[in-house]
């Protein structure tokens, strides 16, 4: 599989996000959107999503001047996004941010750092550095050299500059030693570290993804891994994963080496279970939807577009997971 096939998935993710923003799904509503058990949940969420739309639209506009080809790809895809995709993008975004905020809310530590592996065009570094100017020590984005170059150019034009932000080129499929050297060049191993992998591990071969998890959890003394990925499904009658793997392979040469291996929430979680001091939770995204999206927020989402198929939404969300693993 070429790196290009993987790199291009960033355009899918970013265009989906743009579509969800333009249709009004994202950001989540700032009042009682998510069922949370801590007091400041609303305040935290509204702080995190401040200027969210503006930030993303500005990024898209600068991208237009930097790379016309990528821009038109993203723009075109964002115009053709089905409601079921907008819903899913909303859920994906909310799930990751909620996991980060939950970890920080429960924490007793002050300073922390965040690593986004395979970050692509994700703009969480701006959101989180704005939200935690004192507590957040370092924010590291890792991606392929080409992706990093494009992103650096865009954020320069946007005027975003922060000494705590490090945008680093690294092929995560390569020798794990090099990956760890890259991470350790900018991060402090004794500071609590949040590692985000959003549709990243699914593109790695089995061995490499395990090495990455093991090495990070061993090197960083304390932290929280937050991962969002597809799972193939493990019921005999469930063909979703097999079809997904074939479809993506045939239409764009994109391989998902572990989709059918870590095919259930239990199997997906196993990779973090080697460390028996770690505490993990995992939900499929339909469980997440039912547990965390408030009735009020569901009513808001319903009003945006007619959703033609609930069963389809459910089927898809059953095949994606959000994992949270804390270790120390």
């Amino acid at each position: 599989m070429t790196n290009l096939a993987i790199q291009q998935t960033d355009y899918d993710a970013f265009s989906s996000k743009i579509a969800a923003i333009q249709r009004g799904y994202l950001p989540p509503s700032s009042k009682n959107a998510l069922n949370q058990d801590y007091d400041d949940a609303d305040a935290w969420l509204s702080k995190l999503y401040i200027n969210f739309k503006e930030l993303h639209m500005n990024y898209l506009n600068v991208l237009r001047s930097k790379n016309r080809r990528v821009y038109s790809k993203i723009n075109k895809a964002s115009l053709n996004s089905f409601p079921v995709m907008n819903y899913g993008t909303y859920l994906r975004t909310a799930a990751i941010d909620l996991s980060v905020l939950q970890y920080l809310n429960d924490s007793t530590f002050d300073k922390f750092q965040i690593v986004n592996l395979g970050a692509g065009s994700d703009l969480r570094m701006i959101q989180y550095l704005n939200m935690f100017p004192d507590r957040l020590e370092n924010f590291v984005d890792i991606d392929f050299a080409e992706a990093v170059q494009l992103k650096q150019g865009i954020i320069n034009d946007l005027g975003f500059k922060n000494d705590k932000y490090h945008l680093l080129a690294c092929d995560l499929k390569q020798d794990i030693k090099k990956t760890m050297e890259t991470l350790e060049s900018r991060l402090d191993l004794s500071t609590p570290t949040i590692i985000i992998t959003e549709c990243m591990l699914c593109y790695l071969p089995e061995t490499q993804s395990q090495l990455l998890i093991d090495n990070c959890m061993k090197s960083f003394e304390k932290g929280c891994w937050i991962s969002y990925d597809p799972i193939g499904g493990d019921q005999p009658s469930d063909r979703f994963g097999k079809i997904m793997k074939n479809n993506l392979q045939e239409s764009r040469g994109l391989d998902l080496p572990t989709l059918l291996i870590y095919s259930s929430t239990e199997k997906y979680l196993q990779r973090w279970a080697a460390d028996n001091k770690a505490e993990s939770t995992i939900l499929d995204m339909w469980q997440f939807h039912n547990k965390y999206i408030s009735a009020k927020e569901m009513a808001r989402l319903r009003s945006l577009q007619f959703l033609d198929e609930i069963e389809e939404l459910k089927l898809m969300q059953l095949h994606y997971v959000i994992l949270q693993c804390e270790w120390q």
């Binding site: 998935t9 993710a13 899913g88 479809n247 993506l248 045939e250 239409s251 994109l254």
Partner: peptide, 22 residues
């Protein structure tokens, strides 16, 4: 079943991408 190349390819090659979260 999808057929490649000749005849009735079920999914035309130039179609927009099928929807997955990637």
């Amino acid at each position: 079943q999808p057929q490649d190349g000749v005849g009735n390819a079920i999914i035309p090659t130039k179609q927009p991408q099928m929807d997955y979260f990637l």
